[in-house]
Amino acid sequence: MSIDESTAARVAKLARIRVADDALPALAGEFNTILGFIEQLNEVDVEGVEPMTGVTPMRLKQRQDVVTDGNQQDKVLANAPDAREGFFAVPKVME
């Protein structure tokens, strides 16, 4: 599997990271190096093997379905780059 510039651009878009056009060839090259390394996994016989979901066998704990905290609007907004009137502010989302 070889990644070309347009695939690299598509992946950057999916990851929401802006990559300048002139940086795409080098990026595609790095992807190919890493994916080439990963391709070794194709040598392994994984027939009938379950994919791991959790490394430590355990049952997730349950708790009472009750509110355990809240009323922390000021703390939630304390680190916001732009907070106004108790909300996060962002550029216009809908046209």
């Binding site: 992946v11 990851a15 929401r16």
Partner: peptide, 19 residues
Amino acid sequence: RAEGFGHEVQRRVMIGTYV
């Protein structure tokens, strides 16, 4: 994300996105 993440982090996020 382009300004905030360094090169290695960007690369790994994109590899992860791809796989």
